[in-house]
Design a protein around this nucleic acid. Structure first.
Lengths: 214, 214
DNA sequence: ACCTGAACACCGTTCAAGT
DNA sequence: ACCTGAACACCGTTCAAGT
């Protein structure tokens, strides 16, 4: 993730002095605030620069264009999310499968729900941008963490961890994303989450088949 | 869906004469082509108008602004998708549950995969737009169709169809969305789909609980 | 009722000049 | 090494004039 940004989207220059780092932070902060407060539509470079307390020119020293700024913002967000999931997976090493699943759902759900406005603002990101690299890097990292976790389950062995992992991760993340998009009521969300926890857990008649195949 | 577009996004004028209808169609077609060929970034009103063979002014007679154009495009897309799902659900009336689930997954999956570039282009839609109305209308319509279908299952009765329905729909749509986003290989996609078909089917120990609750 | 396109305003981006 | 902001270019949107 650290090095994967395509050339045309990577920062133009990295801050070397303290005041430069402060400048970049201020720009990020200003962007988030404006994004949350007024949406992508009203986000323009002039406003970002003004709120960050720098001139437009300064902004352009660090980000070659507006999209690179949004891209960097997302990069940061996914970085934190990936780290959270890696943590969760490590904590669950060797635990029973159902606890793993529950912890994973919990971690992802919480990450999305904690600051919904930010999540929403970034989801609603102008995705003209070539964000495939970002998504791929994120997916790779998450897959590694979850596969390792699943392989270590105390009460289950899988003939094809890769495939099982892919399903679990896609189902969980996809479902949460979609639930989020739907703006469910608290009650509905809770119920869905309860059912998802059952559903995503391959412990049931399906696992026996996998185990038999070993 | 037909009437739900918020004021600021609804068409400025509806075509009354034949040539006007042709104009609107040409504009839609041009927009899709440019979107698929060059992405949202390079989509500007001048280019759309030129490719559609009309002047910018004409475009603005039908769409109050660029976003309204994209909005209308999505409205069309969701209209077709919703109709497809309604069809599927009606066809499955009274069928066994596992066939229903399979048909639903199949319909949604196919719809997304048939013209991936278009799907992708619209997913990557500039979502600064207030598309909540669109999403809500779509969700309502789909929920009605799927709930009715599930309630008619030949081999299952649910104590709380609403809740079960919400889970099934969210899991399926979310998973497919996510799978799509990940750009899976054919093999991986097939395997995921197979497992999803099992996973989304509440026929298993979980159903008995529901039935007992009746 | 429908179409045209020059004119205007706004905003992304640059660059010559500063500390 | 870092910052400034006026100047430029591009593109969304309008409107007076046309059929």
């Amino acid at each position: 993730m650290a090095t994967s940004a395509p050339d045309h989207l990577s920062p133009r220059r990295r801050p070397r002095q303290a005041r430069a780092a402060a400048t970049v932070d201020a720009i990020f902060e200003a962007t988030i605030q404006l994004l949350v407060a007024e949406g992508m539509q009203r986000l323009n470079t002039t406003r970002v620069a003004r709120r960050a307390g720098v001139s437009v020119g300064t902004m352009y020293q660090y980000f070659p264009h507006k999209q690179a700024l949004i891209y960097a913002l997302n990069e940061r967000y996914l970085e934190v999310l990936a780290a959270t999931i890696e943590d969760t997976c490590q904590t669950q090493e060797g635990a029973p499968l159902d606890l793993m699943i529950e912890a994973l759902i919990d971690a992802y759900w919480r990450a999305k729900t904690e600051r919904p406005e930010v999540t929403r603002a970034l989801y609603r990101w102008v995705v003209e941008i070539d964000n495939e690299a970002l998504i791929t890097a994120f997916a790779t990292r998450v897959d590694a963490a979850t596969t390792a976790m699943l392989a270590s389950a105390a009460d289950a062995r899988f003939a094809e961890v890769q495939a099982v992992n892919l399903t679990i991760v896609t189902v969980i993340f996809g479902t949460v994303h979609n639930a989020f998009e739907r703006n469910l009521s608290q009650g509905a969300a809770d119920e869905l989450r309860r059912q998802l926890t059952c559903c995503a857990d391959p412990t049931s008649e399906r696992r026996q088949a996998d185990e038999a195949a070993m």
